[in-house]
Amino acid sequence: MNAQPITEVAESRPLPSDSASVSRAVTPALELCGLSKTFTLGGGLFKRGRTLGAVSNVSLRIPRGQVMGLVGESGCGKSTLAKMLLGLTTPSDGDVLVDGRPVRGADQKALARHIQPIFQDPYSSLNPRKRIAQIVGLPLRVHGIGTPREQAAHVAETLDVVGLPRRAAEQFPGQLSGGQRQRVAIARALVMRPDIVICDEPTSALDVSVQAQILNLLLDLKAEFGLTYLFISHDLAVVEHLVDRVAVMYLGRIVEEGTREQIFGSPRHPYTRALLDSALTPEPGLGVPDIGLGDATPDPSDPPAGCAFHPRCPKAQATCRQQRPRLEDIRGDNARVACHLA
């Protein structure tokens, strides 16, 4: 059963439904093995460009029904990672396993039944020339699921689930507010009843008052459909609120990974610590902390030798400059960290 390619399993699934097979409990919903992506910059028809390692050797397991948070500074490769999981970018190296089966070579449609995205910008994630019903129904039509009547019913049902009025079906995206658009994007992701949803900064373009509505919705849906999320965000308070485990990325690599309590309670990597320190909670009188990082933001196409964080790290030592620390579970508590001093 496990050796079966993903395509056939997907093909044999009828209408999207929440069927759970027995063997699923053990294999993680999503597993990344040594995933890497290299971009070539400035190449032309006849000349070769420089290379940029946007994601390097990322390994991660996301257990079924859990939320994995992914944080890190701007440009560290979070969106590139998400795009590889969604099949939008082919990895330069490494594998993605969905339900223990490799995705490489599986066709996009089969993958789409398992993984769906929610993107950052509710203004560009919906085609402005299509009605909401068309947008949400598109997955069903592309996959030829059900008759047009069944599809319409399914769309209406999904709009209910995400808390949109049914009359929204006939409207265009331009007639909806940012929060409503994000609900439409969520409906589109859910209409196929996927197992895994990749959320790339789903609330960062929304006002805080709307953000809370969307976060509540995501939590409800997770409980209702047993979804597994990869949740990418800059907002640490939101991440702490939502996730079960967190992975911290720096310059294309994961530098620390662990449960929410481990990361937020006792961070071990200096970058994680700096990140947590710079989160400004609404507590007046505390002032802005001095996080003690230099401003030497590294060039991703020319990463520093050794630990990529060493030029900014307040604790850096000679080894840090020469040797790259490995991401290891040092204490055997199922938390991994890549730092010589951890």
Partner: peptide
């Protein structure tokens, strides 16, 4: 635009994406 990404993740065919998602816009 993210709606083109969304169509691509769904496995929409290239002609569909070009004619129905890109062209109208």
């Amino acid at each position: 635009a993210e709606y083109v990404f969304a169509a691509r993740t769904l496995g929409c065919s290239l002609p569909y994406i070009l004619l129905r998602e890109v062209l109208p816009n």
